[in-house]
Amino acid sequence: MKKLFRSFVRQKELWIISLIALTWVFIFCYIPMAGNIISFFEYYPGDSIFECKFVGLKYFRDLFALPGILKVLRNTLVISSLGLTIGFVTPIIFALLLNELQNRFFKRFIQTISYMPYFVSWVVVASIMFTVLGTDGIINGALTGIGVIDKSIVFLNEKSMFWGILTVANIWKGMGWSAIIYISAITGVDHELYDAGSVDGLGRFGKAWHITLPGIAPTVVLLFILGIGGILNAGFEQQLLLGNALTKDVYEVIDTFVYRYGIQLGRYSFSTAVGLMKSVFGFALVILANKISGKVADMRIF
């Protein structure tokens, strides 16, 4: 304790600078956590928690008793995994490619263009997808034009294509934005290493592989571990907007499920229970991934 106090005194300027942010985090991130208590009670807004009936783990059990929950878990894990693999690697590759561009103006232009979709709402993205993938859309027009198909395909009605379409849409929307942090990490790599690499006969691919990638590896690991923590957050708006009654079997994820069976039905305790379960599970995964990363790659975030 004394050690902690001494450390605080020694670094008091830093603590004072951080005070507002820490207060904000405490008020808005920590205090609301106490609200998780309602997941163990049959709570109605306006009632005192003392008057609410204690139901233990009922709402956690309720989730797993709902028909179709296994499909929902499968969809959540598959969509998240696609994001954590293809969706995670794409911005890294994009950042590496962007780093290879010599013309600064062109490089900045491409970078700006690439993160613009991030600011486009999912409603607009869905509308674009409908236009592109509709029976009168560009894709069907091109495929029928070159004779690959003779009848238009209703892409968004096809279960087998939904995960792919969703992943592509997620990548298109988020790739440029996610690449910013890697581009920033790349600029931090010591340029002398590249000079040394040139002397050793490394080409552009060799430098990217042997210098740039190892240089940004801590950032990659950090983001990957944090990404694993969000594995049960597979999206929400995009599923509701791009999905339809025919693709529900493959688009329904935990968040859309809870929206319907919790929020829309006014079952706040149930919604809170699911949120708590997701957080606990995500936290456990972060700990686990961190440990594995520490043992295997000797890199950990805490």
């Binding site: 309720d62 028909p67 339809n244 009654a245 025919l246 529900k248 319907r260 069976y261 039905l265 006014g266």
Partner: peptide, 26 residues
Amino acid sequence: NAEDDITITKQTIADQIESDWAMMIT
């Protein structure tokens, strides 16, 4: 009522029918 079992039954059946109807007619 939100917390009644019949409400959940209603919702699950409505969800099921929504998908099934789309499949039937297509």
